[in-house]
Amino acid sequence: MIDVPSIPSTPATINEVIRTRRSVFTQQFDPGQPVDDQVIWQMLQNANWAPTHKRTEPWRFTVFSGESRKTLAEQQAAIYKAYAGDKFKQGKYEQLKQLPMLCSHVIAIAMKRNLAVPEMEEIAAVACAVQNMALTAQAYGVGGYWSTGGITFIEEAKALFNLAPEDRLMGFFYVGQVRIPSGDGHRGNIEEKVTWLK
């Protein structure tokens, strides 16, 4: 694996990466422009350093690139069609067939359940891992976003990712080269969300 150049980690740099991170959606990607695999590996390496109670490291990732994106597209559309029942929508079915092809990489996000700790802690650990991925993408100028749409909550979809019944599929992280940057973000005043006791 080739090393990706590191970025100096001064407090100012870290603050900047955190505060400028934005979700960049597929319609903002430059279709057909790949992200270097080594940047994806850097995202995954940083995900692997998320906090984890009892070091259970519950995060599991399946990366789809190249032709495997088409396989994912066909499989997820078929699962949706088979199990959506009365909620089936043709537009969503078509979207599931097209969405992966607009991306450079699609990363399926899963939680491998460990009964040694409460499930909430495992979910939180995976979420921290995904945040590390998002911040890494931002640092390298790559677009991406975490979605829990599509087949995320269809139980039968777990088989695609070798997940047991107690495990969870937690969505997909879509990655692409940025064509249209996201605008400035907004957050409410932190002072309104903090109770500070002395």
Rank of each mutant, 00 (worst) to 15 (best):
V35E: 10
V130N: 02
T71S: 11
F88G: 07
I107R: 14
K87F: 10
V39K: 03
P34W: 14
V106P: 06
A77R: 10
L135M: 02
D36I: 09
A110Y: 02
P34T: 15
D86I: 07
V106L: 07
W41K: 10
G66H: 07
Q75D: 10
A129I: 00
S65Q: 02
I107L: 03
W41D: 07
L115E: 15
A110P: 02
T71K: 12
F88E: 12
A73D: 06
K97Y: 05
T136N: 01
R60E: 04
E74F: 01
L96Q: 02
F88L: 04
A125F: 05
A73F: 01
K70M: 11
A78F: 08
Q98G: 14
V35N: 07
N114M: 03
T52N: 01
L96R: 03
D86R: 15
R113A: 11
P58R: 00
A77N: 04
A116K: 09
T52G: 05
H105V: 10
P31F: 12
F88N: 12
P34H: 15
K70L: 14
Q38E: 15
F64L: 05
Q138R: 12
E57T: 11
M43L: 02
I123D: 11
N46R: 04
T52P: 04
G66N: 09
K87M: 12
L115A: 14
Q98M: 09
D36Q: 12
D86F: 13
A124N: 06
L44K: 08
A125L: 00
Q38A: 15
P34M: 15
N132W: 06
P51M: 12
A110I: 06
E94D: 12
F64R: 03
K70F: 13
M101R: 13
E121K: 13
W41Q: 06
M43Y: 03
Y83N: 14
I79T: 00
F88H: 08
P51G: 08
A137I: 00
M43K: 01
A116V: 12
P31T: 10
S68C: 09
R60V: 04
Q33G: 10
Q98Y: 06
Q90T: 12
M43I: 06
H105P: 10
Q76D: 08
K81T: 09
W41P: 02
R113Y: 05
G85K: 09
P31C: 15
